[in-house]
């Protein structure tokens, strides 16, 4: 395995003088390199073909994603009704909520997506909320939250009682009133 500098045979001039035979011999001695190059070329070609088949045609149309994905997402049914729809039938809630700490919290942030209920209020009933589970999603104590944000250690704070025993969710400050 010692490395020997490649010898140029008896020299290029003589090789030329030998004519096509010498060139053919040299080609034969390097033939395996052409074969391995062919294998690599076949691999590269296979990659190009597979890529052409697998990459969606609309890829890159708007950015580094499938362009038709936008239309597909836009075609999905709307699941949120929007607070204006809720307030049409439940005007007593914003009357309380807009004066309290939860004024900026949208109805469906707590009640969930209710487009189906808004379309057919008689048949589709919203699920009853469990405040002991729901409230701590925002209000459990965490050092990363701003100091002024109301946050509690639920076990210490309520000893297992549901939050709405004391706090009315639409206006949670005790004594501020609001819909039960």
């Amino acid at each position: 395995m010692t490395i020997e500098p490649a010898q140029e045979g008896s020299g290029r001039v003589e090789d030329r003088a030998d004519g096509d035979g010498a060139a053919m011999n040299r080609f034969k001695d390097a033939e395996h390199l052409f074969r391995v190059a062919l294998v690599f070329a076949a691999g590269a070609l296979a990659f190009v073909v597979v890529r052409a088949i697998l990459v969606p045609k609309s890829f890159g149309e708007y950015g580094h994603y499938r362009g038709t994905a936008i239309a597909e997402i836009a075609a999905q049914p709307v699941v949120f009704a929007g607070h204006e729809s809720c307030e049409t039938c439940h005007p007593e809630v914003p009357a309380v909520k807009n004066k309290g700490k939860h004024a900026k919290v949208n109805c469906e942030a707590c009640h969930g997506a209710l487009a189906k209920h808004a379309e057919d209020p008689g048949t589709v009933e919203p699920a009853k909320l469990e405040t002991a589970v729901l409230c701590v999603k925002c209000h459990s104590k965490n050092g990363a939250k701003p100091e002024g944000f109301p946050q509690v250690d639920a076990k210490e704070h309520s000893a297992g009682l549901a939050c709405d025993t004391c706090h009315k969710p639409h206006s949670p400050v005790i004594g501020a009133g609001g819909k039960p």
């Binding site: 490395i3 001695d29 390097a30 033939e31 395996h32 074969r35």
Partner: peptide
Amino acid sequence: LTLGSTNISENALRIDERASY
């Protein structure tokens, strides 16, 4: 693995050495 080439003549191996280097 031979890729169909069994040429291990001195010149072929010298070419291998050079390519490998």
